[in-house]
């Protein structure tokens, strides 16, 4: 069976900015594949190239076996898309948005009606089908967009930051719906997110930073990059702590704002020794490694510190614009 997505040396420049820089990856059919990285890392640019909305500067990619540049209309027929910014018409009803989509994709009306019913049911929006979308909450709009993207039975569903701007509870619901829809329909899902904890849904994750994939593995495989447990220490003198740890335990820690991170095989026994050896410790925490730690380990910085490039500035302006309109 052919891969759902293949990318070879995919590159896209915006004037002097290299947004995507020689990216290679494949996504198997039926897989949930995620791009994880900070804002401006090149996630949205990659998705836009795969969805035929941007042309790559160099390199090539196929979706469902079709070339994204030369066979763009075949690709468009094979994919569903949920954009980072809402693309529903909020002065139409949920049903109208869905049916308009079906007309655009040439879904026969009879099929359209049964599929719409099924999908709206799966995400719990059946009773709101006749309501104007502007009366919907952010989470409901996202659910509706998920359904709409699946109406024409695409082979691959693209989700660009599907939980951006939603509150934590709604976010976890959206992930549940994504999992349910994936289980029911078996669609390949390609998604991007900058929420570390949410990337765990994926079968495989590519961590992307400054336009390059710096790691690609299953969530548990990625976490093995971080050796064992993570011990987080707060102290008044971080430099002294780092020096002492290197000297006595042969451990090099990572700095992040006010905390120092150590990775160690057995955190439980390391903590008492550390406290004994270094008196100036204010706070100690122990936890299993998360993708956040993986990112910190690979890039030397926390995901929330990053960004503020040109693309981010555009995106922030866009979000502000959008809020103003609502």
């Amino acid at each position: 069976m052919t891969n759902a997505i293949e990318a070879f040396e995919l590159t896209r420049n915006f004037k002097d900015l290299v947004a995507v820089n020689g990216v290679n990856f494949t996504v198997g059919a039926g897989e949930i594949f995620g791009f994880l990285g900070p804002n401006g890392a090149g996630k949205t640019t990659t998705i836009k190239i795969l969805a035929t909305l941007l042309r790559p500067t160099s390199g090539r990619a196929t979706v469902s076996g079709y070339d994204v540049v030369r066979q763009a209309s075949n690709v468009r027929r094979a994919i569903g898309m949920v954009f980072q910014d809402q693309s529903l018409d909020d002065r139409l009803t949920a049903e109208e948005n869905m049916l308009f989509h079906c007309v655009l994709y040439g879904v026969p009306r009879k099929d359209a009606l049964t599929r719409m019913e099924e999908l709206l049911d799966l995400v719990g929006l059946s009773i709101r089908r006749k309501d104007l979308v502007k009366t919907f909450s952010g989470g409901m709009k996202r659910r509706l967009e998920l359904c709409r993207g699946l109406l024409h039975r695409p082979a691959v569903l693209f989700l660009d930051e599907p939980t951006l701007g939603l509150d934590p509870q709604t976010r976890s619901h959206i992930w549940e719906y994504i999992r349910t829809l994936h289980r029911e329909l078996g669609t390949t899902v390609f998604l991007t997110t900058h929420y570390m904890e949410e990337a765990e849904v994926c079968d495989r994750i590519g961590i992307i930073d400054h336009g390059k994939i710096i790691a690609l593995d299953s969530p548990s495989g990625l976490k093995r990059v971080v050796g064992g447990d993570v011990v987080i220490v707060k102290t008044s003198d971080k430099e002294a702590l780092l020096a002492a740890a290197r000297e006595r335990f042969n451990l090099s820690g990572q700095l992040d704002d006010e905390m120092v991170y150590f990775e160690t095989e057995r955190g439980e026994s390391f903590i008492p020794e550390l406290v004994k050896a270094i008196p100036d410790i204010l706070e100690v925490r122990l936890r299993q490694p998360t993708l956040e730690d993986v990112f910190l380990k690979l890039t030397g910085r926390a995901i929330r510190d990053t960004g503020s490039g040109k693309l981010d500035a555009m995106r922030i302006r866009r979000t502000v614009h959008q809020r103003r309109r609502q």
Partner: peptide
């Protein structure tokens, strides 16, 4: 909404 149309076949 036009984005939705731009990505449609």
């Amino acid at each position: 909404f036009l984005k939705e149309v731009l990505v449609a076949p």
